[in-house]
Design a protein around this nucleic acid. Structure first.
Lengths: 203, 203
DNA sequence: TAGATTGTTAATCGATTAACAATC
DNA sequence: TAGATTGTTAATCGATTAACAATC
């Protein structure tokens, strides 16, 4: 029913822009305002809004606060999102410290690592040993995991996550994971991004 | 002339898969072999190869080593790629330590930070103060920069990079940068990826 | 040769844009 | 009301797939 992976990304762009308009004192916006700034057609904005049930008004356009609230609701940012992190290396630490999550109700509620020098049940969030991963997921009904372990370790952790019935993985490992019916994956592969950039610069 | 941003990403998938086939003892592959494993049509593989001038043979398919070499050449991985890193926080450190770059001739030749506690001219790569950024870029003819500074700092650094005539930025800051004629940008926004995942899991 | 695969053209599919009737 | 914008339908554009002639 819904295939376009860019829709949610666009919704977030709209949201960011709406905050900026709001800070300028705007209360309402037209699809043209958003389209001009973002460099897309106003049809796309109206179509996206229409798709997600965001209503406008032929006289006054769209009410900024209403749209922002609706977008938060659509994504799920209106309610607390509990996410776990597997692999507390540099990337993992960067994510734990990232302030931006808090604004949108995303919380990394626990980290996991095989290295017992990194585990610490008292820290915030607690860093637990990987052996506790399965139990933690089922007990706390965790649905989304961020996978930031080194490449060679990833395969075994992925098996474990599948068994634990996790539903979404944000994958930072170089191994490209495929989504299935029960598990949605988004792969972030830095080398691929860099390769694209290097190619573009060359041409 | 060339707009499809997925082409290079696919080329890298092909390359990874070809290495796997090679490790199994294969010398040649057919477009069907690649297509089946990757879940795309064989037409796409042949079209991509054809687009980049990778030739096959109606009898024996494609010669693995030749294709791998050609792909490396197309992306630019056959020659040393000097990249700089701006912002030596957790993400920056993760990138410096990432082994995977070396296999493909990518080298982070210098890091930059405003924090003088982090600068160290003797380390490998050297971490220099941001004030030396512009000079370093022009002196060493750097074309690609990875931007991994905290959100609030990013705007000023971006100005500096533009002035320094950098041609490509891999942007980890939350600020979505737009490409221009002189500057290609790829944005990696972790919150956007996570939002997509949270939405997908909800639906 | 007969069979199978490449390379390419035509068809399809999906996403974005253009156009416009409905309506505030 | 007249004017302007939404919401939606039709047209366009681009990327992927299907089909098939060329050819090894």
């Amino acid at each position: 029913m819904f295939s376009d992976k860019e829709k949610i990304s666009r919704l977030l762009s709209y949201k960011n822009l709406l905050y900026r308009f709001k800070s300028l004192g705007f209360v309402r916006v037209f699809s043209d305002n958003l389209a001009d700034t973002l460099g897309v057609s106003s049809s796309l904005i109206r179509k996206d809004f229409s798709y997600f049930g965001i209503k406008g008004n032929q006289r006054g356009g769209y009410h900024i606060d209403t749209v922002i609230e609706k977008i938060q609701e659509i994504i799920g940012f209106n309610e607390a999102q509990k996410v776990i992190l597997i692999g507390v290396g540099h990337i993992g630490k960067a994510l734990i410290q990232y302030e931006g999550f808090r604004n949108d109700n995303i919380a990394i509620v626990a980290g996991f690592d095989i290295d017992r020098n990194k585990t610490n049940e008292k820290s915030n969030p607690p860093i637990l040993h990987t052996e506790k991963l399965g139990e933690y997921i089922s007990k706390n009904k965790i649905k989304v995991a961020i996978l930031a372990v080194p490449g060679p370790v990833s395969q075994s952790v992925i098996e474990l996550l599948r068994e634990s019935k996790i539903e979404g993985i944000l994958n930072f490992t170089p191994l490209k994971l495929k989504s299935t019916d029960n598990l949605v994956v988004r792969n972030i592969n830095i080398k691929v991004e860099l390769a694209n950039l290097i190619y573009s610069v060359k041409h």
